[in-house]
Design a protein around this nucleic acid. Sequence first.
DNA 1: AATTGCTGCAACCGCAGGCGG
DNA 2: CCCGCCTGCGGTTGCAGCAAT
Length: 294
Amino acid sequence: MGGGRAPCCDKSKVKKGPWSPAEDLRLITFIHKHGHGNWRALPKQAGLLRCGKSCRLRWINYLNPDVKRGNFSPEEEQTIIKLHQSLGNKWSKIASHLPGRTDNEIKNVWNTHLKKKILLVKDANLYGDETNNESSMISSSSSSTSFMSCDNNNIGNGVGDDQEARVVLSTQCSPSYGLKEASSSSSSISNSSADQVDVSRPREEVSSLFDEVNKQDVCMSDEVVGIGDPLESDDDFWNMLANLDSFLSNEAQLQEFQASQSSNFGEESDRENECRKWLSYFENELELEATGNR
DNA sequence: AATTGCTGCAACCGCAGGCGG
DNA sequence: CCCGCCTGCGGTTGCAGCAAT
């Protein structure tokens, strides 16, 4: 497909970089209510100053309730390694075999952990230093998952560039690495997989919403929202967001707000209360079940 | 305590493929 | 068959957090 193709969006009119909690909320709410039939048109309809691709990526990788968060289990690692041997860097194909995992996530895990470990195994085997090999592997990485090569002949014969070795993951050890606690820009309202999900996440993330909004990181376009806003029935919700923004943009009020957060009751309990309020609000708004059911 | 280097995650970019007109 | 639009994919980069010095 040759050049001259129109860009997917006007780069000068879209926001880039980390997503703010308010943006996440808009996207979540919009998709819950209207679905995502047309990613290209979605940002405008939802009142987001984002590229459609960016919205899609954000939804698929982080906001989608089906996305499993948290550490990769040894079984998942093993699956990735096996599939990578046969499929190469076909991350989406690999992801299709790992429910709840996204191609981006798998790609990151491969590039940051598994690839290095496999290389270590390969190097160690090439030099025949089996003894040091194992101990160095265990101590050389943030992961405690150990690798043991069982078939050197396969080294380097894989599909992709990173097809190094056939390895077996020890399932006795637990992975110590995992997805970093969600950054301030990462919000996930619901948790569909309790097993590997840090249950404390929602609280922290909703509280992070306050932090982020405090920073005035919200870049909604009222003009855009006003144009054929499909969410007219959600005026209250958007008004709430707008009020929150304006409230927190007032410096004096902001200080007051922050002061109240660290009042006599303690920062934690206060935050918790705020978070609960927000959670129940969002659950209502998104027509989810009561807290803790998702 | 300050600085530097490393690690890992989130997000962007460009291209490829599918599909409809 | 050609063209243009849209989505999806894979590579790459930016940056925050952490560890080491």
